[in-house]
Design a binder for these strands. Sequence first.
DNA 1: ACCTGAACACCGTTCAAGT
DNA 2: ACCTGAACACCGTTCAAGT
Lengths: 220, 220
Amino acid sequence: MVKNTLRREDALTRERIIEEAIALLDSSGEGGLTFRALAERLATGAGALYWHIANKNDLLAAACDAIVARRLGAPPVDASPQDIIRAVALELFDAIDAHPWIGPALTRAPWQAPLVRILERLGQQIRALGIPQAEQFAAVSALLGYILGVSVQNAANAQTGKQLGGDRSAILGQLAGAWAQLDADAYPFTRSIAAQLREHDDRMDFLAGVDLILRGLQRG
Amino acid sequence: MVKNTLRREDALTRERIIEEAIALLDSSGEGGLTFRALAERLATGAGALYWHIANKNDLLAAACDAIVARRLGAPPVDASPQDIIRAVALELFDAIDAHPWIGPALTRAPWQAPLVRILERLGQQIRALGIPQAEQFAAVSALLGYILGVSVQNAANAQTGKQLGGDRSAILGQLAGAWAQLDADAYPFTRSIAAQLREHDDRMDFLAGVDLILRGLQRG
DNA sequence: ACCTGAACACCGTTCAAGT
DNA sequence: ACCTGAACACCGTTCAAGT
């Protein structure tokens, strides 16, 4: 009876399912999202979820879109196109870092709602930069590809770091050590930047790359 | 120790397992790689595979590395750093297009063998370009992030296109139609480039982005 | 309309037992 | 050392049956 009244008070909705899915994904990772676990959290049966969502892919895409929409929520005002692009890029970098399951989810549903949201935000600024119409598509897809690619890579790094024990500098130190021991003939470059690996700042490097692309665009 | 005894013609080896896994992944996609299906193809039991590989992740990473090593096999000669970088970029773009499962596999094993191979190849050219030591890490990780990000995105597009029916121009036309019907106030940019979506060449846009980054690097 | 929960057809992985 | 194949503990998804 307690269970029944509980269910009545907060009826199952698509939104509630998505919110709980996000919580599950954030706390237990990609593998933690299970229809059984989700149903238990929502005090319902696994089959009930299918009344509101089509399948797991649909759920993942919806969860992803909810995060992206939230992060891109605040409309930018009074800033240069470059600054807005940088802000959007950092917002996505941080969002994917906070929710590492977004990367795979975005890749699995290309050109759907979340990606189009980002495309639009970046595209408006590409236009504001005065890039000719014929080059806008290439410009925005380069920017989009870079932002998502580096962010996903960074989140994956952080994630495996967490799985290995948490201490970031220890992990990086260990990796740097492994690189330093690579074959000197085959891997001269990797060996030479092993030290930099330990000191570098992913977020700053990411932003530097965005600036690189912006610079290239303006002198195209 | 030297093995004197004759090996069975069809003895199970790590290499044979990896080759068969690649064949399975290529023909049936990521979900097609199953220990049962793989064991059947190799005329053995599922458990036998675990004598040669640690788990599915290990297998996926090994398959991924085999492809990357093969594609980066030919050592570059007599070409400018820029041309070599472009060649490596295109090689990876085509490899990921041909084996779409590589994207997720690369992301799941960051900074392991395959990624380090690519890092080294790109890094040697970054060095040859005369980028200062202190900036080399940021430069190569920007390039790497862009190349993988756009390639993975492109492969995912092609993949879902295949799933939906195969006719690329029909799919793009349909997507362009959907974009053209988006809300005019919220999505002005996306609507405006819907037409370009139909005509653009992913591979050329990708290469244009590489050049953008190279240009930015040289004027940094 | 919405929900239940058992059932179906799968998975990856393990392990006693064989050769 | 290497392989077998049944068993375990899971999955996503479906669907008759309930309210």
